[in-house]
Simulated scan of single mutants.
Amino acid sequence: MAEDSRPPGSQAVVRALRVLHCFRDHGPELGATDLGRLLDLRTSTAHRLARTLVAEGFLEQDGATSRYRLGAAVAELGQALYRHRGLYRVEPLMESLAEATGTSPGLAIRSGERAVVVAGEAVDPEAGIGVYIPLHASAMGKVLMAWDPGFDTSGLGELAALTENTITDPARLAEVLVRVRADGYATNDREITPYKRTVAVPLVDELGQVRMALALRADAGSLPPERFAELAEVAKEFAPAFQRLLLRPSV
């Protein structure tokens, strides 16, 4: 067996973080039994981890049901992300882009096998909390994958079918990402929901690395595929302004 190179105590940290991820993926309230089942832990271990997170403000426990939910510390970190990344600076740009295109703009960053929307209609600016979307079924996710030189679609594991249009074959997804790089933009043609389409372009930092994705989202009826290239060009025109506000270091 290979020697574990992680520092002492890191296993407990990883377990605690996985407890928090359970609330992202499996609902707003979970009991210790639920956490143990989801993480393959003894209920007593899950309870101990949850109680530690309660003590640090990352979880709260309902006194009546003993079930756990996310705590204020999570919202505080979300607010810190919103401030530290300067996302508040792009609100006027988002409004201008919405007016110019008749769509709902959004910004996303990579988080493991998901993209997290950090600005746009899916985000609560007061709480700084966004939503996670799957990389393989979203335009923003495809952008973040396509320009990651070390990315391998086989590392995504099983690709869930969210609609009949979702790409579930890793080989086909790899081909799509080649086309995304060639076109300079990605699309989501009713792959997460049958009622929405999205176009997304990359946002690049001064080192030439794609750090975020800028998307335009609308009802499928008002955004036919024939508009994809047109909207991508508008998003590309706005991209430098977003990059100046979000991705260049202060001087």
Rank of each mutant, 00 (worst) to 15 (best):
T168V: 15
H47M: 12
T163F: 07
E99A: 13
S138N: 02
Y195K: 08
R37N: 09
M145D: 03
L135V: 08
E91I: 11
A137D: 03
M1L: 15
A80K: 08
A50V: 11
E230C: 02
F151N: 05
A98E: 14
L20A: 04
S111N: 11
P28T: 07
G63Q: 05
G157Y: 02
S66P: 06
I192D: 00
L30T: 13
A220W: 05
L173S: 00
A146D: 09
E56C: 06
A182K: 12
E56P: 05
Y195V: 14
T193P: 07
G208Y: 04
I109A: 15
R69F: 03
F23V: 12
Y195I: 10
S104T: 15
R6D: 13
R42W: 13
F242T: 02
D34E: 08
L20N: 03
V180Y: 04
V74D: 06
A72E: 14
D25P: 04
F228H: 01
R67W: 10
D152S: 14
R227I: 09
V204H: 03
F242G: 00
V123S: 00
V13G: 03
T52K: 11
L159M: 06
L246A: 14
N165A: 06
S10A: 15
G27E: 10
A127K: 12
A220H: 13
E76F: 04
A122Y: 08
I192H: 02
F228N: 01
R18K: 09
A213T: 07
A220L: 08
A241D: 13
R24K: 12
A73F: 01
I109E: 15
G57I: 09
A239H: 07
A215E: 03
P134Q: 08
H21W: 11
G31T: 07
A46D: 02
T65C: 01
R85A: 14
A55V: 10
A122G: 08
I192E: 02
F228S: 01
A182V: 06
L93R: 02
M1Y: 13
P224M: 15
K142S: 00
E76A: 14
A73I: 11
E226V: 11
G155T: 15
G78Q: 04
P249S: 13
R181Y: 03
L223V: 04
A80G: 13
L59E: 02
A160S: 14
G71M: 06
K236N: 04
R197V: 00
G155M: 12
M94K: 07
C22N: 05
A218F: 00
A213D: 01
T153C: 06
A218N: 00
A160W: 12
A186T: 06
D189K: 02
A12W: 06
R114V: 14
E237Y: 11
D205M: 05
F228I: 02
W147T: 10
V14S: 05
D25W: 10
L97W: 15
V251K: 09
L41W: 10
M145C: 03
D4S: 15
D148K: 10
A50Q: 08
A55W: 05
D124N: 15
G102Y: 00
A239W: 09
L156I: 09
Q209F: 04
R179H: 15
A32R: 15
E233C: 06
D152F: 10
V180S: 03
L177D: 01
E206N: 09
A232D: 03
R18Y: 04
L93Y: 07
V251P: 13
